[in-house]
Write a protein that binds this DNA or RNA. Structure first.
Lengths: 214, 214
DNA sequence: TTGCAATAGTGTAAAAACAACACTAATATA
DNA sequence: TATATTAGTGTTGTTTTTACACTATTGCAA
């Protein structure tokens, strides 16, 4: 029972954001291949902390929503060595700025989930699972708010839902449903867009929190 | 990146069944304390396989529904050593027989979830999370069928739902809903109970499979 | 043999949730 | 001042969900 097996335990993160109207993942380049940000869990480090640390070190992203996804431990997932990966996904608010954060120590790029290059190890499977989970959670939680900037319009929120679900939603029904959840409130400000009627701005009532609904 | 940290990786399982009208967990006695079945993951062993192996070795349970729940890795969850636990939950069909299976190598006991004794490490938290997940899954999957014997009556299935949810359900509405899912079919046989009208027996249409619904 | 106790089995109506649908409002620019 | 563009708003029909009560079949006991 107290046997310590030699293995590599890593945390891997799927950082999602909406980029140019598409759901995108932040990838890290290692030599010639792309992989998810992540790396070994420290000897005295919490799993979540390891995920946050690697994400910050490799991409500059901090202070974002993070949720454990699944643990991958097939003996052959990393050729040669025994590696177990605790996978997470993270949600990055639109309007985030990598530049604001700690400089990344790796080459990174946002890539649309539908245009993923070949990824290291089983990272493609991790992305696929994360994407399914995110889409499923839209239906029964307020998780989409974690992808929004502090202030946003209802049209922007609807676009985020549509992009993740891959289908168009009815504007009136969407607004009715979201407002009934009582998870956002009008700021009183208007978005100063150009060429058309300005939109009311909203903010999350409980910004850090993801509520279950229904 | 290739650092191998010394740590104990275990698989821990929460085996659920309905015992005497209550949701129960199969516990294993170790010295004077109770714990979940489980133990170290082998050096070349898949995580799921490790969970199944320990469950079989320690309790005699095999061939049952198993699903990964969450990975617990707080540095101090096991005093002294660094231990990471990949937690699973398992569903045991009513009418199962431990005696049929391989003899268990440990003292085991089914304990109602509402009467749990003090458990080793963070196993109480694992049970709590597993219980929440199971209850949530009732709403959007056919997972309850994994707790049923091959043939069962609708009243029995309803009782299982009621026990897990902790609330009574309307008989007619329950039947309508379950039958509409098209996940069970009548066997044509009747349950030979005594003292009242016999009930029709049903079986799962796809016994091994858990379908998502709605 | 008849009555009682116990669980099985069945339908309808009201309420709530969801889905479909089209026009007016406010702004920037040409 | 006309046009293009997006914001914003209610109603109606359909579907889903909920609430609800009686008859049927059996074993057992009187």
């Amino acid at each position: 029972m107290t046997l310590r097996i030699p293995l590599l335990l890593t945390a891997e993160i799927v950082p999602f954001a909406i980029c140019t109207e598409r759901l995108a993942v932040l990838l890290v380049q290692q030599a010639t291949t792309w992989r998810l940000p992540g790396g070994p869990v420290g000897g005295e480090e919490d799993l979540d902390a390891a995920a946050r640390r690697h994400l910050a070190e490799q991409t500059g992203l901090g202070e974002i929503y993070l949720e454990q996804l699944y643990t991958f431990g097939e003996p052959n997932r990393d050729s040669g060595q025994r590696a177990v990966a605790v996978a997470y996904y993270a949600l990055v608010r639109a309007g985030f700025s990598l530049a604001d954060a700690v400089p990344a120590i790796a080459e990174t790029r946002w890539v649309a989930v539908d245009d993923m290059p070949v990824l290291a190890l089983d990272h493609a499977a991790i992305v696929t699972l994360a994407r399914r989970r995110l889409a499923a959670k839209l239906a029964y939680s307020t998780i989409a708010l974690q992808l929004m900037p502090e202030c946003f319009t209802l049209s922007q929120l609807q676009a985020v839902h549509e992009i993740i679900l891959g289908e168009l939603l009815d504007k009136r029904n969407f607004r009715k449903r979201i407002l009934a959840l009582d998870c956002i409130e009008a700021t009183g400000e208007m978005a100063r867009q150009y060429g058309h009627r300005p939109a009311r701005l909203f903010r999350a009532k409980r910004p850090g929190q993801v509520d279950f609904i229904k």
